[in-house]
Design a binder for these strands. Structure first.
Lengths: 169, 169
DNA sequence: AGAAATTATGTGACTTGTCACGTTAATTTT
DNA sequence: AAAATTAACGTGACAAGTCACATAATTTCT
């Protein structure tokens, strides 16, 4: 029936080109790719999840802190950590103790096995960051971070500043 | 017991600054923020999910195509679409018909209700893109896209090019 | 002090995305 | 033409995030 015209390739290529020129369309795939890469490296180097790695890293570098503080540093939702930490405690990576002064808080500390895993995995992740620096100059990194910062700021604007009142009926 | 030294704030602030200067640490939050923004806009404008929006947009702009083609254009995994489409069909947004020539493929087409929703939602999403252009100059967008492209390329490199053979024991 | 508001954490439900594997249909080899 | 390979799609299992809401502990206000 010739449903699909001869110009198919062009049609689709054009559309793909459009999507490729849209930051919003592009971002998911870029992020997904870096996440997957990290996931594979972490899996191979020490069988860690991304959340686990981030947490061990922060605790190693900055010492004990509460769940909220971890979330803040990681720019993550506290629920992500709230869910991940008991597992990490069971594996012996961290200890969790309720703060005696402020009974709402839970203080998370790196335990020796967590330190060991961190030290095993860290070189691999460092190599990755080094590899990135081979692809981007320091100036480019700075610019990139600036763009990311501005994009995030934009994305966190209340949506009414974008679509106004036309749907508030 | 003075578990948490006075220098806490500095300690955590320093750590946060470190994370903030790492593209890999930064990306998740940026992406998450844009995703959430899109989610809210789509929810308000027409109660669409991101996947639904992307699909309607592509079909509207480029006409009928197969699941694989949709996935390719969106740089997404086919499974994402494979799962979302039956729902969209049930809502009347699209039709799915098995290709008579190649029985493996499913041709997805925009149906009138899908077109209507698209036309209702599109202006809002366009306004968002316009708003972004108010924050970034055309040159900046070009540079940004270039960085994203290079980062994605980097992230898709086989991980052995990063951590070598030291874990292949 | 007691009431009201705020804060830290835990948890359920959901979206986006990945990978691996199975099935069925086409295509390529031999 | 049969066999082997490849391709398209469906689906289960999981990771990373989000939001909303519950609960308990602190703080603030009156």
């Amino acid at each position: 029936m010739g449903k699909r015209p001869e110009t198919d390739e062009t049609r689709l290529r054009n559309r793909k080109a459009r999507e490729d020129n849209n930051v919003f369309s592009r971002l998911p795939a870029v992020y997904a790719a870096t996440r997957t890469q990290a996931h594979k490296l972490l899996h191979r180097a020490g069988n860690l999840s991304t959340v686990e790695w981030r947490t061990l890293w922060d605790l190693y570098k900055a010492g004990p802190m509460t769940i909220r503080e971890l979330a803040e540093i990681q720019r993550a939702d506290h629920s992500l950590l709230s869910r991940a930490l008991p597992d990490m405690r069971d594996k012996g990576f961290v200890t969790m103790e309720r703060d005696r002064i402020d009974g709402r808080q839970v203080l998370v500390s790196l335990a020796p096995p967590g330190r060991a895993v961190y030290e095993q995995v860290a070189p691999v992740m460092k190599r990755r960051r080094d590899a990135l620096r081979a692809e981007f100059s320091p100036e480019e990194i700075t610019t990139f971070l600036d763009y990311l910062e501005r994009l995030e700021k934009f994305a966190r604007r209340p949506i009414d500043t974008i679509c106004e009142s036309e749907f508030t009926e």
